[in-house]
Design a protein around this nucleic acid. Sequence first.
DNA 1: GATACGTGGAA
DNA 2: TTTCCAAGTAT
Length: 344
Amino acid sequence: MDAQTLLDWYDANARAMPWRVPPVTDPMASSSTNRRADPYSVWLSEVMLQQTTVAAVRDYFIKFTTRWPTVTDLAAAPDEDVMAAWAGLGYYARARNLLKCAREVTARGGRFPDTEAELLTLPGIGPYTAAAIAAIAFDLPAVVLDGNVERVMARRHAVVEPLPDSKQTLRALAASHTPQVRPGDYAQAVMDLGATICTPRNPACGICPWMSECEGRLAGIATELPRKRPKKAKPVRHGTAYFARRPDGAELLETRPPKGLLGGMLALPSTDFSDDPQPAPPLEANWQIAGEVRHTFTHFHLILTVAVATSAATPERGLWVEAANPDDLPTVFAKALRLARSHR
DNA sequence: GATACGTGGAA
DNA sequence: TTTCCAAGTAT
């Protein structure tokens, strides 16, 4: 059976990860002794892994589980602590939804639901994450369909229709492979395959456990699958960030509005990011230009001018803080803060 | 269905 | 330097 081939490969090649329980390869061990990762670890890791690499997630996962060992601990954390801990990982709506979800689960008794349908109702849990938690934490035969599985299925069955049009076709193919036995390990196996062998560029077809049945490889088109619609060009936008320092050394920061770009994150007061940003200094001062920061977001390039000033004036917005930690800010503002501090 | 939403590493 | 892209979700 196809799935068994992947499970055998996974048993021999599963990568160690802080949130993962290694597969039980002892043939005497029954499924009842096959330990599962706890739902909190699975949920937290899967949310962090949304559009994010394993390498980037690892240290954040350890930081979060050390500081907040259970979903109830996380639910009790102040918003600003969680947002600061998430700083640098990106897609900050995930952190806002993480807290909402932790608080909902805690209000329901502190246990994650064990069905896809119930998981899907929680904030920040979409079709992929609901299936992943059902499979990995509860060993249910949910159809896990992420970018890895889409790529593996497109190649395995030589699907030439471009994404996202082919999404439902790929989902049906993924469902056709999902086994009733060890579905949780299978889900991780097929994603590991995509991450390590069936990679976007230069796939290692020669050592692939599905080498002999891969229609894409047999047709010589595996590497060019899955096809995707061309992406739009990113426009360049501009803005100014203001770094105000008080004579006693305090620095002026502000929390951004709760929605939209970098929503809810600690930041330097700044203009909007647009073609023609309007000046918006948080206080009257002799502003000087420290330099520029260039940063690329998902859908635009930003050229951010960094202005600095020393003043004891009362700001129109923001909050004086004694010692801001750049690592508590989104990367673009961490860059701006470091540049501003280096300006004499 | 289209768009908004981060970041850093690889080629 | 530029482009691509990684275990997606919300609206």
